[in-house]
Amino acid sequence: MTVTLSDFRKTKEIMIQEQLALLIQQLEIPMSLKESMHYSLQAGGKRIRPLLLLAVLEGLEKEHDDAYRVAAAIEMIHTYSLVHDDLPSMDDDDLRRGMPTNHKVFGEAVAILAGDALLTYSFGIIARLEHVSSVDKIRLIDLMSLSAGAEGMVGGQVLDIEGEEKQLELAELEQVHRLKTGALLTFSILAGAILGEATPEQMVAYSKFGRHIGIAFQIQDDILDVTGTSEELGKTAGKDESSEKSTYPSLLTLSGAQEKLDHHAAEAMAALREIGGNQERLEQLTQLIVNRKN
């Protein structure tokens, strides 16, 4: 592979950013709402979910005219969840991606509505794709609703809130992570597989990869909340401990959490081998996820 991960990320992130800006710009909506949506979408971030989708297509040696629109829709869902997570009624955070949180800039009411708008717009984007069959649009919308809704991210957030100030069992904590973080990550991977016409066997392996990489992502988040600074993370460090939340480090110690992280990373790599072909880009992204510092 001649393109380095750094160049891959740089090129793709620019195109994702441009797609997001275009999709928001074309909306005929109140300016305050548009500015609030645009603010959080353009605040940066790792763009891991869109990058995973695009890496799946690369591994399948496929290109797709609607890939960036689907990637943008997924990033909108992720961004909406962050806007809502930061609200006083949830995590009550003042800092996100090194910038004031949305509700600190636009007020709570507009922040809530901007999150609502990003979520609903994402489904409209998928419904209006021009180069995807009706059958695959339904598959994408169905999987997206499962991953983002009560059976996925929203359900995981509820479990996360209910888990504050109480000691969770390890299996309960893994369930929180699988739903809150892993579900949308897995959808990003499966969306790429659908666009890339993966076989049923490959879809199973991609799902397994997504499950393990999603948990690994959140374990590293737990570790960084202990070891990182607010400046490094771009958000308030130490929130888990101050909220008395169960985390992998609190249940297993830092070294035990690292062992769990290594286990899920290894399982993710094993799933990639089941897919076959050249999965070097997804291997690189796996290493990026488990070794990141923010």
Rank of each mutant, 00 (worst) to 15 (best):
T2R: 14
V3W: 00
T4E: 09
F8N: 04
R9V: 09
M15W: 07
M15F: 12
Q17P: 08
E18Q: 10
L23R: 03
P30G: 13
S32C: 07
L33S: 15
E35F: 13
E35I: 13
Y39M: 05
S40T: 04
G44A: 01
K46Y: 03
R47Q: 13
L53V: 05
E58I: 00
G59Y: 06
D66N: 05
R69L: 09
I74A: 00
E75N: 03
M76G: 04
H78E: 04
T79D: 10
T79Y: 05
Y80L: 01
Y80C: 03
L87W: 15
D92E: 00
D92H: 04
D93C: 12
L95M: 15
L95I: 15
R97G: 10
T101G: 09
L113S: 13
A114H: 10
G115C: 11
Y121I: 05
F123Q: 01
L129E: 14
S133C: 09
I138T: 10
R139Q: 14
L140F: 09
L143R: 14
M144V: 03
S145E: 11
L146F: 14
A148G: 15
V154A: 12
L159D: 11
L159W: 04
Q167Y: 11
R178H: 04
K180I: 06
G182C: 06
A183V: 02
L184P: 02
L185C: 06
T186A: 07
I189S: 00
L190R: 08
A191V: 09
A191W: 09
G192N: 07
A193P: 02
I194G: 06
A198C: 07
A198V: 13
P200G: 09
V204D: 00
A205G: 12
S207Y: 00
G210H: 03
R211V: 00
R211F: 10
D221F: 06
I223K: 00
L224A: 14
V226F: 15
G228R: 02
E231I: 09
E231W: 10
T236F: 00
T236V: 13
E241M: 11
E241D: 10
S246Q: 07
Y248K: 00
P249K: 12
L251A: 08
L252M: 07
S255N: 07
G256L: 12
G256R: 14
A257W: 02
Q258K: 15
L261Y: 09
A265Q: 06
A265E: 05
A266C: 13
L272W: 03
E283P: 05
T286H: 13
Q287M: 06
L288R: 01
V290H: 03
N291T: 14
